[in-house]
Design a protein around this nucleic acid. Sequence first.
DNA 1: ACCAATTATGTTGATATCAACTTATTTGTC
DNA 2: GACAAATAAGTTGATATCAACATAATTGGT
Lengths: 146, 146
Amino acid sequence: MSTRESIPHSETLRVHDRCLCLHAQRAARALARRFDEAFRPLGITSGQFSLLMALNRPEPPRVGDVAAVLAMDRTTLTASLKPLERRRLVVIRPDRDDKRVRRLALTATGRSLLARALPLWERTQAACEALLGDADRTRADLRALD
Amino acid sequence: MSTRESIPHSETLRVHDRCLCLHAQRAARALARRFDEAFRPLGITSGQFSLLMALNRPEPPRVGDVAAVLAMDRTTLTASLKPLERRRLVVIRPDRDDKRVRRLALTATGRSLLARALPLWERTQAACEALLGDADRTRADLRALD
DNA sequence: ACCAATTATGTTGATATCAACTTATTTGTC
DNA sequence: GACAAATAAGTTGATATCAACATAATTGGT
């Protein structure tokens, strides 16, 4: 392999400093760890919290709806539901009218767990916002990327 | 279960709109998908690109160094190296002085692949920056979170 | 009513993620 | 020099992520 085919280290540093994908991954991993830790006493992760929260609606949403809300792959969602279903936090029921559709609903246990998780979220969220100059601006930027 | 134990839907909406963890996860997933797609012709993912780039240094870094740079769990890194090692893009060698330490180095093939990936990164990065008003500000915000 | 296109979802296989635990080596203190 | 503490890294088991492929039900055009 000739030298022509490799990248100088200076270029590596430039990519490393600027790559939005890497910056977003690092921030996402760091935030996930922080929230995971906060929710640990309840035995759920940050992702499971977001998912349970997305299911807390008057009308049980469909799989596709939830995937869209979380900007998550549909098949990832199917997999993520498994442990929650096993723990009886979520029930999956066929739709009344459309037999293709499955409705995702919190159980009473799930709702109760979510209620206990909320104050933990508040605390952690406040701690994270404190790291930012303008959390609303950051949220707007993040939204622009998805 | 009593009603006292559940969260009103309005509260759910507030959490959903404000949660930094969810916003970061969504943005990270969206960016990863975008870069994954760009790198697909080369058979690597966005995460593998970042990892290979992190190894492109004059002195082969140690496992712990790379994990710190990527803000990634050390054991995640060990797992992520496996497919790259299998494809002979990376070699893992014991350190000369400290027998606990393993040095991670790109192979000639790895360096060459990275060089071919760089223009794809440039294009995708530019497209993502175009979504933001001020990419430097966004990067600074993301850095504040990790 | 038929049937092709579309829609909603699931399954499989590979990789990524992290906590908990384990092993091997080095360092520092006496 | 012995040995406890600290350091570097790996393994296991659970969950998360997504592409590729597969299935079943609905819709729309004729």
